[in-house]
Amino acid sequence: MSTDSSTSTTDTASETDVAALESRIDELESELAELQGADDGQPKMSLIATKGTLDMAYPPLILASTAAAFGYEVTVFHTFWGLDILHEERSKELKLSSVGNPNLPVPNAVGALPGMDRVTTRMMERKIADNDTATVEELIGTALDMGVEFQACQMTIDLLGYDESDFYDGVTTGVGAATAIQDMADADVQLLV
């Protein structure tokens, strides 16, 4: 008698457990399907470009266009002097600093003389041309063609007195740090240049 009753209690309990587990499995499966749907499998890269010298314009542009060739969805968030890379006029006049750059064959005392930045910049531009290295403008055009999203930080556009129309066609404006954070959180690769 007592054995029968205990068996029936156990059966009821395990039936309830099974039902609960089944519904939990359904729940998890639908959550998993949702997550798999959200992640379309395309890797993402998020770069932050903060520098606006001729030499420092290259790394973000080269990495962005190359990552796009690898199939990455790429965003480059440009802030402070990094905005100059996207500035249609200023991007053609980026300079190489002759001071504080020990890689140049110019001592700082000489580099500080008036006009020296122009000399070192010309030297670099000649090397770029001689080496058939793409120009900043060409790299931006190529990257845009490949679907790279260039973002110009709104706060620094205002801070530096630029206008949204100063930037290359296709550059996204009206974005801030929150957008950059969101991109970085979603990305597989994040870099600050």
Partner: peptide, 14 residues
Amino acid sequence: KGENCPMPVVKTKQ
């Protein structure tokens, strides 16, 4: 020919 990084890879992809 004559083009340098990153153009060979980028143009290949395109």
